[in-house]
């Protein structure tokens, strides 16, 4: 669509400019022009990503009647392995239970072997776990149960019962999938060393100083370790026959070493039942003094 267009301004401007140029030319004149420039700045934008983890849990079913019994007294529980070891550990924990009943305020105690594939581990304060070079890896079910136990404030003592540690590769093979936290050598002032008796070493059938546990600052259960790991064959040192006679000699310390092994057992169970109670007690005096004010 062509509209009407006023040509007068164009005509007038042209005449004006021509006349001006004519004037300029006739006077020999010149003119000048200049430029300015600008710069642009670009701002980069950064993006970040957030990762989250999903916890999961598995629950084993427990027969109600069994559960009634399991909640009636304090159980010392161990993970079942081969028949021979089961027998020794059963004897060992029974020996320790006698000592606890004899020397501490614990009254009703019993010993039970558990199968992590099917048993609910929640009823047990402490799991004694013999772990040997021949042990088979855990089933997926067992891994789930053990992890749930550790994630809800349980405590496991791994014992190689051989006087020496397993190679890390072998440990990883047997415990594949289990959330074992990073372990450190037991610190010199650890509450395990004064939770009942004052102890410097934790001898069992053997007297090796290899002992590791979860450090206080990484446990979310009031700093109480969920995993402990040693090599001294404590169950063998604690084991007694029906007449109360020891089943294995303690090397090299003999009966004096066995007494220390029992004391370790008492400290261990107290640690599992009362956590950092003993180390709190040191602060209780300070707190009490503060209270009156």
């Amino acid at each position: 669509m062509a509209g009407e267009r006023e040509l007068r301004p164009y005509f007038l401007v042209t005449v004006f400019l021509l006349f001006l140029i004519d004037f300029g030319v006739s006077l020999f004149m010149r003119g000048l022009l200049g430029f300015a420039s600008r710069k642009m700045v670009f701002v980069p934008v950064l993006l970040g990503a957030v990762l989250g983890a999903c916890p999961h849990q598995a629950l084993a079913t427990t027969d109600p009647r069994a559960a009634v019994d399991l909640t009636a007294q304090t159980y010392l529980a161990y993970i079942q392995t081969d028949t021979e070891t089961n027998h020794v550990v059963q004897q060992g924990l029974t020996g320790l239970a006698h000592v606890l009943q004899h020397r501490t305020s614990l009254e009703q105690m019993a010993v039970v072997g558990v199968n992590p594939d099917k048993d609910d581990l929640a009823f047990y304060t402490l799991l004694y776990w013999p772990i040997k070079s021949g042990s088979a890896p855990l089933s997926a079910q067992a891994v789930e149960h053990v992890n749930s136990y550790l994630h809800h404030g349980g405590m496991i003592l791994f014992d190689t019962m051989q006087g020496e540690a397993l190679s890390p590769t072998l440990m990883q093979h047997i415990l594949a999938g289990v959330d074992v936290p990073a372990l450190i050598r037991v610190p010199s002032e650890h509450v395990l060393k004064h939770s009942f008796y004052i102890l410097n070493e934790f001898p069992g059938r053997y007297d090796k100083s290899d002992f590791w546990l979860e450090p206080e600052d990484s446990s979310s259960y009031d700093g109480v370790a969920t995993v402990l790991y040693g090599v001294n064959g404590w169950a063998e040192a604690w084991a007694v026959d029906d007449q109360g006679r020891p089943l294995f000699p303690c090397i090299p310390g003999g009966e004096a070493q066995r007494e220390l092994a029992y004391r370790f057992g008492v400290n261990l169970v107290m640690y599992a039942l009362t956590g950092n109670y003993k180390s709190d007690q040191l602060h209780a005096q300070v707190l009490l003094r503060k209270l009156g004010k």
């Binding site: 004899h102 020397r103 305020s105 939770s195 009942f196 008796y197 004052i198 009362t274 209780a284």
Partner: peptide
């Protein structure tokens, strides 16, 4: 402030007090 009894008075062993915490 937590208070519990780890060893009841009736239960005595021959361990000297210096070795008890």
């Amino acid at each position: 402030i937590h208070f519990t009894i780890l060893r009841s008075p009736s239960k005595l062993d021959n361990v000297p007090n210096s070795e008890l915490a």
